[in-house]
Structures are given as structure tokens and as C-alpha cells.
């Protein structure tokens, strides 16, 4: 399956990864080689096979809904590029 540069750009935008024109070309080329390779999975008939999403055989463990830890707000914003009074500061979301 051939992936076009437009397609690469579309997916990169979805993933919020900006690619410049050089990167777009090389990523596209690499992607096509890899996709050609993974196409070999089509050799297998998996029509009656269940997918494996997780290799552990138990369901997600549950616990009582009660507060067991109270992380300090200062810790939460300690690494923030921009913060104010324990809030994360970002550019305007609604223009």
C-alpha cells in the first residue's frame, strides 16, 4: 500500500507532529518501506483468531472510591513551562 505525501501530512497533523518538507519526504519514504514490509501479515488467515490486546489474563483491578493520596499542587506545576498560582498557563483556546 502506497502512502502519499498528502496522507503523511494528514496523519502528522492528527498526531500534532509538524514535519517540514524534507522530513515529510524522508518520513514518507521510510513509511512506505515499512508498510510494504508489514503487508506480509496479509499472508495469514486470521478470520477465526481472537485479537490479543493484553497478555495478562485478569481484568482491570478495582478499588474503593476513596481518597488515598493528596499530591501537593506545587508538585504538579513544578515542571510547568508557564504557571500561575498552581494553574498551567497556555495560549488562548477560544479565539
Amino acid at each position: 500500500m502506497k502512502i502519499s505525501q498528502a496522507e503523511v501530512r494528514r496523519v502528522a497533523t492528527l498526531a500534532r507532529v509538524e514535519l517540514d518538507d524534507d522530513e515529510l519526504e524522508s518520513v514518507g519514504r521510510d513509511l512506505n518501506r515499512i508498510l510494504d514490509y508489514v503487508a506480509k501479515l496479509d499472508e495469514l488467515d486470521t478470520s477465526t483468531v481472537e485479537p490479543t490486546a493484553q497478555v495478562v489474563d485478569f481484568a482491570a483491578p478495582m478499588r474503593t472510591d476513596e481518597v488515598t493520596s493528596k499530591p501537593a499542587p506545587e508538585d504538579a506545576v513544578a515542571n510547568a513551562p508557564r504557571s500561575d498560582k498552581n494553574f498551567f498557563v497556555v495560549p488562548n483556546i477560544i479565539e
Binding site: E7, A12, E18, L19, V27, L31, I93, E95
Partner: peptide, 28 residues
């Protein structure tokens, strides 16, 4: 450049080529 631009620019500057390649492949 606004929020969306910030996401794209931060990730473009912050991620190396292999990481970008895998994110795009995985998203695809």
C-alpha cells in the same frame, strides 16, 4: 502562534527523527 501551533512546534523541536517516524506510523 496559539495552542495548536504550540503543540506542533513543541513536538517538532522536541522529538527526534525515529520518534516522529514511529508516531506517524502508529497513528496511521
Amino acid at each position: 502562534g496559539g495552542l495548536t501551533n504550540m503543540y506542533g512546534a513543541s513536538r517538532d523541536a522536541g522529538f527526534g527523527a525515529e520518534v516522529k517516524r514511529r508516531i506517524v506510523l502508529g497513528s496511521y
